[in-house]
Design a protein around this nucleic acid. Structure first.
Length: 875
RNA sequence: GGGCGCUUAGCUCAGUUGGUUCAGAGCAUCUGGUUUACACCCAGAGGGUCAGCGGUUCGAAUCCGUUAGCGCCCA
């Protein structure tokens, strides 16, 4: 059978994914095994796969596949979230293109359109994850707005309300005038912008010609001013206490108040107060019982209350009012100014601080156990540096505005009665019952109830995800008791507050314990220049194109090669290319092993026997390293271990050592060992590169139908012989020296060499001669008692090796090399001696460290002796 | 403005309680190579005052202070 010399992922990836699905290998149900559970960070239902998802889901799949192969009952629950604002905005846009205005539709009609959109686009992203190889239990696919998840959200709301943790209140919220909804603090992105600082003169009432000057970046808001404030310590304004000033253009008189909030150094030291449109002004207004004048409509245009410019957009007014103020003589000057302005994360509209009635979740009590859990490592963060950030946020946590003025989402389970009171209940029927009780009117009908028009923030369903995906709010606890708490959560560090912190709170609030044991924070995927990947920049490659070009395995490797936990990663196409190259390397190693003729009668060469003995230990050594990496969530390092184990140790050393001579068969014992090692390495590789490892595993040995590497067990770990490994390294070193020598002297491989060994205290292991002989083509290895004059030479530790060659050695070059090595070794010995000569070191350092230094001293002295001898011999 | 973090080879980054020859890996570069598994490869090589300065210590890339540059989070 001819095997192609290039590995072609397109021939295998789809095939094996279908096979795994058909065999039901991703499925999990509770049994007696230890569970290993991961819930996917649900991507936006109408979104498409981007590089962040690729990274994130690759890591999850690696963890899940490894756990499965370690004998755990691995369960990875997939799903999507409904992304309230984003999806509603998309649907509104689509309707607008069709000539339909949202406000012309009823809520129900709008929701029909939204569901249609969701049905059409939802799930695309999950299909894309399959291309990546994600081993999710697809039978468990959840959606934040499906029935079970919605029930959970409503039950949680009612429960929290009954505990007094949810309240309705008038607060300053972040208003998005484009989406026409409040958004949470976390959804506001602050950016530095070039704006202007306007200096405005307010005339003192009754004192024509007397002014105070204020500085503001938002001159249009003067229409809502209800005071001017100065610092009580400020001498400059003391004479104004108790007086009033006139708002420019309007002539409305407002008081001059005193509050220590005002920074005397900033601007003019005189601050205008607009309680309805600035959070700090609002607080000052509360302290001084000021009136609030809301001059803006929800869409950002000026309202009747403004008195002027009514109906015009806030930014248009800013320009127009500048002119008007200049004409009226109130504009003193305008300076360029840089300030931070809040933008909506979803719509990029400038956020308007706005007084509004909203639902809030009290966070104080919820935060406490969640904070403790992370600080005590009951929930472990990887990398731990995020603990600090988390603590800072948790200690300063503010109440969470959970209502959104949207239709797409979970409608708030609150019903208002005609008298303005309200009831909170899980269903309409229960609401009616409660309302009858509350009103004392047993005849109250449904028509007397009006459900709150708003929906809940999307994160109000996402934070319950680890619970609701196992139907944790219903009486049947079989699933949740088995799978919860989950094991690992893998997510971007950008949603640590949005999601991670809140899930931990929900875990303690509703389940009494943490939702996951470990959180692995990934970095943000950036382009080569360090820019965040975004649609508008067009700097994000299409993940599916990458998979088509380099294979899913190649892309997975590429993602990991640049992804230390938590740090940003710079992606460019050389990375999946490297992954593809690795696939090809593995494939060709397989071709080699598969292509050999196997002879039952051929004797096993000693070199092969030694190679097998060595690689068995080497494999164990690396498996220990890999396990250690995984235990510390160093997934990239674990991959790098597998990578070098396969490429360097297995392919470049082991296979070369056992390779039979040209056109000769390989003996059966050696071949069997090679196949067994290959099998082991496919296991180690499988979590990282599921497709090629399955393809090769299936071909390595006959397999039964339904078998798969993904549900087979990882090779068993055992202790390994590190002395053997060290002594083998000495042979490798000798081999490398001979190779260099061949290269320097232009001696081709086919020409066999003589090797003479002048043994020192260490550096030579005679039993490995067959390996040495095979890899560098020696005709003999002989132990000598004397130096070999005129031969090329090299050293391993204190042993000297000589290779007699026809042409003479370049004495000068050789001397130079030896002198350099001598100098280095002497310098090294010197530092060692300094340490050993230092009484405080000998007394203070641990015994082992001192012993090491003594060993170094002995080694160095032996080597120096040999070097000096050789130099003398050459001179 | 407040807080946190980072700065190690051309690039991306490791360096795990200060102590094995500790200054590393991968990629890139350079030099050889039609050794029939692989040029998506093989064999080699070069390359860094561990950001600067000061301190602690027998010993510092590692701990402390400080300066500069960069990044992130929060208001």
């Amino acid at each position: 059978m001819e095997i192609a010399s290039k590995y072609d992922p397109s021939q295998t990836e789809g095939k094996w994914y279908s096979y795994w699905m058909e065999q039901g290998l991703f499925q999990s149900s509770p049994d007696e095994r230890e569970p290993y559970t991961v819930v996917i960070p649900p991507p936006n239902v109408t979104g498409v796969l981007h590089m962040g998802h690729m990274l994130n889901n690759t890591i999850q799949d690696i963890l899940v596949r490894r756990a499965r192969m370690l004998g755990k009952n691995a369960c990875w629950v997939p799903g999507t979230d409904h992304a309230s604002i984003a999806t509603e905005a998309k649907v509104v846009n689509k309707l607008r293109e069709e000539g339909i205005v949202k406000t012309s539709l009823t809520r129900d009609d709008f929701l029909k359109h939204a569901w249609a959109w969701t049905d059409k686009h939802g799930g695309i992203i999950l299909e894309q994850l399959k291309k990546l190889g994600a081993s999710c239990d697809w039978d468990r696919t959840c959606f934040t707005m499906d029935e079970v998840r919605s029930q959970g959200v409503i039950k949680a709301f009612v429960e929290l309300y009954n505990k007094g943790l949810i309240y309705r209140g008038v607060r300053m919220v972040n208003w998005d005038p484009k989406a026409l909804t409040a958004v949470s603090d976390e959804e506001v992105v602050y950016k530095e912008v070039d704006s202007k600082l306007y200096y405005l003169n307010y005339e003192v009432e009754g004192e024509p010609g007397a002014y105070v000057t204020i500085a503001t970046t938002r001159p249009e808001t003067i229409l809502g001013d209800t005071a001017v404030c100065v610092n009580p310590e400020d001498e400059r304004f003391r004479h104004l206490a108790g007086k009033r000033v006139l708002v420019p253009l309007l002539g409305r008189a407002i008081p001059i108040i005193q509050d220590s909030y005002v920074d005397m150094e900033f601007g003019t030291g005189c601050l205008k107060i607009t309680p309805a449109h600035d959070i700090n002004d609002y607080e000052i207004g509360m302290r001084h019982n000021l009136e609030s004048i809301d001059i803006l409509n929800d869409d950002g245009t000026l309202s009747e209350a403004a008195g002027l410019f009514v109906g015009q957009d806030r930014f248009a007014v800013r320009k127009d009012i500048e002119k008007a103020l200049a004409e009226s003589g109130n504009l003193l000057k305008v300076e360029p100014y840089k300030n931070k302005v809040g933008f909506s994360e979803r719509t990029d509209a400038v956020i308007e601080p706005k007084l509004s009635t909203q639902w809030f979740l009290r966070m104080g009590d919820l935060a406490k156990p969640a904070l403790d859990a992370v600080m005590s490592d009951e929930v472990q963060f990887h990398p731990p540096k995020f603990k600090n950030l988390y603590r800072h946020w948790m200690e300063n946590v503010k109440d969470w505005c959970i209502s959104r003025q949207l239709w797409w989402g979970h409608r708030i389970p609150v019903w208002y009665l005609n008298d303005g009171s309200f009831v909170v209940a899980e269903t309409e029927a229960e609401a009616l019952e409660a309302a009858r009780l509350q009103s004392g009117n047993a005849a109250l009908g449904l028509d007397a109830l009006r459900q709150d028009e708003d929906v809940l923030d999307t994160w109000a369903s996402s934070w319950l995800w680890p619970i609701t995906v196992f139907d944790g709010f219903n009486p049947d606890k079989k699933e949740i008791d088995y799978y919860y708490p989950t094991s690992d959560l893998v997510t971007g560090h950008d949603i640590i507050f949005f999601w991670v912190a809140r899930m931990i709170m929900a875990g303690y609030a509703f389940k009494g314990t943490f939702p996951f044991k470990n959180v692995y924070f990934t970095g943000m995927v950036r382009d080569k220049q360090g820019r965040k990947m975004s649609k508008s920049l067009g700097n994000s490659p299409d993940p599916l194109d990458l998979i088509a070009t380099y294979g899913a395995d190649g892309v997975r490797v590429g993602m990991l090669l640049c992804s230390p936990a938590g740090g940003d990663l710079r992606f460019d196409e050389s990375l999946p290319e490297q992954g593809r190259n690795f696939s090809n390397k593995i494939w060709n190693a397989f071709r080699l092993v598969k292509g050999w003729d196997v002879s039952e009668s051929a004797e096993q060469p000693e070199s092969a026997r030694l190679a097998i003995e060595w690689f068995g230990e080497r494999l164990q050594q690396e498996m220990a390293v890999i396990s250690d990496h995984f235990s510390k969530y160093r997934v990239s390092d674990a991959l790098m271990s597998v990578y070098t184990l396969f490429w360097d140790e297995f392919s470049n050393w082991f296979l070369e050592m056992i390779k039979p001579a040209y056109q000769q068969p390989i003996d059966a014992r050696t071949h069997a060992a090679a196949v067994a090692y290959f099998d082991d390495m496919m296991h180690l590789l499988h979590p990282f590169m599921p497709f090629i490892s399955e393809e090769i595993w299936q071909q390595l040995s006959p397999r039964k139908s339904g078998e798969s590497i993904m549900v087979s067990q990882m090779p068993a770990q055992r202790a390994f012989d590190s002395e053997l490994l060290q002594s083998f390294d000495l042979v490798k070193e000798a081999i490398q020296h001979v190779r260099t020598l061949r290269k320097n002297r232009n001696v081709p491989m086919r020409e066999a060499l003589e090797l003479k060994v002048l043994t020192g205290e260490d550096g030579y292991v005679a039993r490995y001669n067959p390996v040495l002989t095979k890899l560098v083509n020696l005709e003999s290895v002989t132990v000598v008692k004397e130096k070999e004059a005129g031969a090329e030479s090299f050293m391993v530790k204190s042993t000297e090796f000589f290779v007699p060659l026809a042409a003479t050695v370049n004495v000068e070059e050789e001397l130079e090399k030896l002198q350099a090595e001598l100098k280095y070794t002497e310098g090294f010995l010197n530092t060692v001696m300094k340490k050993l000569g230092n009484e405080r070191f000998v007394a203070g350092a641990p015994e082992q460290v001192v012993a090491n230094e003594q060993q170094k001293k002995a080694d160095a002295e032996a080597k120096i002796a040999v070097l000096k001898e050789r130099i003398a011999g050459l001179q």
